[in-house]
Design a binder for these strands. Structure first.
Lengths: 199, 199
DNA sequence: GCATTTTTCCCGAATTTTCGGACAAAACTT
DNA sequence: AAGTTTTGTCCGAAAATTCGGGAAAAATGC
């Protein structure tokens, strides 16, 4: 499970306090003092979540939220808010923030929320990775004759074995249980050259 | 995105009120008056989340939570709690509840939380489905001669086409771009019988 | 630069696969 | 129940693939 929490908080005291709380709960805080510092860490494949103060001198929590959402709509942003700003925070939640926490907040509450956000993030990225893998294997349907469809697989298998053997046709043929010459025959038909697999 | 929310609430007035709130937000409430009634709807592939009162005459929210978790640890359970029970609810969250809502709660807050829970649920089930699909395509490695490995794929392709054609060998052969007799030849070699694909 | 390995191609025979024709049995129309 | 379609099987010739031997070209090692 993911553990990284990108903290965006200008108040050094509060930031350190949060850091300690998270460390005690076996999370990995990444402290930053504002949007500018955090910005370069926010990307679509960030394996963690964001915990940002909503009121800050240079940029506010909404800037963080907007930027994070633009990088990845499935990157959870938890907002820290003063009591007076609760209505604002609730609106932020409707705008895509994952959750808000009222300052000062119960540490246990904070880690509960962050754990949920991390679980969500984990699922979202795992999902994305699997989707990509599936896309690779999907386009093997519908069209073409049986022999044509099989050629796709044959090509994949031979490429795999050739790649494992570092382009050595002899060993690849061995692992495939066929004579060298036969593999050359197949390679010619599939327009494969051993050179492409040298390492 | 999923919309179903299984409501477990003994107070008919509150239940109806929640129902209306959810319907207005384009969600699909499934009202029940208690654990007994809800139990048969809770299963590992339930495409929605649970919203349960924590204090009820027959069984309490913990029974619901325990049962739901035993069916599926990734099935979110949101608990409704009176003000005095907040500490209990927070403990429940640590025990696996997705979130708690303090009664009487802001309707907007409720739908926000439910939406998050539904999004999580959606990801969790999608994930599971993809994992199964990937497991199917995985065992295509390492062992056997080239011809043997290809036979696995050939079998899959023919099975697929035969299944689509409802066991009609002629149409399957057509879709595969080979004569009927050839398909019979292949089927014999692969020990496939058309009967198994009739519907 | 020279020896050795490896790639790549060609040949031809043995084997396998393809595919059309034919046909009995089974299944379905009407 | 007769007629039509579909299934499943066998045959045999044409086509494709396999595979061992061989040999030139290219790459690699020393």
């Amino acid at each position: 499970m993911y553990k990284r929490v990108l903290i965006i908080e200008d108040d050094a005291v509060l930031r350190t306090s949060i850091e300690q709380t998270l460390e005690l709960q076996n999370l990995e805080p990444i402290p930053t003092n504002g949007f500018t510092q955090a910005r370069r860490l926010i990307r679509s494949n960030f394996r963690g979540v964001i915990l940002s103060d909503i009121q800050m001198p240079d940029h506010d929590g909404f800037d963080v939220l907007r930027f994070a959402q633009s990088c990845d709509p499935e990157l959870p942003v938890v907002l820290l808010t003063g009591h007076s700003d609760v209505p604002t925070a609730m609106r932020a939640v409707r705008d895509g923030a994952y959750e808000y926490l009222e300052k000062p907040c119960d540490p246990q509450r904070m880690v509960d929320v962050l754990h949920r956000a991390l679980a969500y993030r984990h699922l979202a990225l795992e999902n994305r990775a699997m989707r990509e893998e599936l896309d690779d294997t999907q386009p093997l349907d519908d069209i073409g004759t049986l022999a044509e469809r099989l050629e796709v697989y044959e090509k994949q298998i031979i490429e795999q074995e050739l790649s494992d053997a570092g382009g050595k046709v002899a060993t690849a043929a061995d692992r495939l249980g066929i004579p060298r010459n036969t593999l050359y025959d197949r390679m010619k038909k599939l327009r494969l050259v051993a050179k492409a697999f040298r390492r």
